[in-house]
């Protein structure tokens, strides 16, 4: 009887060890699957970029002066809007631009259906090609509309497209 008891105790110890391993493994797996995925802040970043662009072209309900049909505004969009597309030097981000911003102006009365009156853009133009694709590891594209007036009261429809790549750290 004593021999049998010892054997049973050994089996129970192995059983407990196996259960311990299973529970520990499951906890490690759950922690890894929860904390292993990053926070995706790109939608907020793209939204902030669109907000900044909206602030840049419209103020107090009216179109800012020197924006529409101004070649200088178009060529120096980043400087004129106080934007900086510099990124940290990781994953080759410096060589490949991580941002794109485009602002299109339309006559509101003939929108949609009319061509844009004026357009200004800055950043990595290639990112636009990913906007209609579906998948996980893709840049975040955001389109925001803005209705505004010029000083004479003429209405304009403005489309702001902002794109943030930064896949390696967010997706």
């Amino acid at each position: 009887m004593q021999k049998n008891k010892k054997g049973a105790e050994k089996i129970i110890s192995v059983y407990w060890f196996a259960i311990l391993l299973i529970v520990a493994g499951a906890i490690v797996y759950m922690v890894f699957s929860f904390y292993g995925k990053p926070y995706d802040a790109r939608e907020i970043e793209a939204g902030l970029l669109a907000d900044k662009a909206a602030e840049c072209v419209s103020y107090a309900g009216y179109l800012r002066e020197g924006v529409l049909l101004n070649q200088e505004f178009k060529e120096n969009l980043l400087e004129n809007c106080g934007l900086n597309f510099e990124t940290e030097d990781a994953y080759g981000w410096k060589e490949q631009g991580q941002y794109f911003l485009q602002i299109d102006f339309y006559d509101f009365n003939s929108y949609p259906g009319s061509n844009s009156l004026f357009s200004a853009s800055a950043g990595n133009n290639n990112l636009k090609n990913f906007c209609n694709l579906e998948g996980e590891k893709l840049p975040v594209c955001l389109e925001r509309g803005l209705y505004t007036l010029d000083k004479e009261g003429k209405p304009y429809a403005i489309k702001i497209t902002s794109i943030v790549r930064k896949i390696e750290k967010n997706a």
Binding site: A50, D51, A54, E55, G61, Y62, R144, L146, T148, L149
Partner: peptide
């Protein structure tokens, strides 16, 4: 959202 608010303001 700033663009939406600005649109309402302009409206």
């Amino acid at each position: 959202e700033i663009p939406a608010y600005k649109s309402l303001f302009s409206y």
